[in-house]
Amino acid sequence: MLLIACPHCGNRPETEFRCGGQAHIARPEAPSAQSDEAWAEYLFVRKNPRGVHAERWCHVHGCGRWFNALRDTVSDRFIEIYPMGAQPISELQSEARA
């Protein structure tokens, strides 16, 4: 079970959290102006990387707040946890290339 550092509550077990999938997919300012292709991309197309992934997490069974995290999908190590709306400091490069 992963140990996740909620920025508001500290380390808590994975079962208290919900993963909200890929981060940094902003809802378009004017959805009606989007082409069908662009809208379909926004709705359905997601990355599935082997390595570092920027994800949204919510501490649903705790403070209920959303935050972003960089997690390496190979090692399951959390590299960085940062607020909604911010960008990570770490580079999006896998540490498990070997």
Binding site: G20, A26, R27, R56, C58, G64, R65, W66, M84, G85
Partner: peptide
């Protein structure tokens, strides 16, 4: 609702 309120 919370997701949209907090993140969008």
């Amino acid at each position: 609702m919370e997701d949209y309120l907090q993140t969008e």
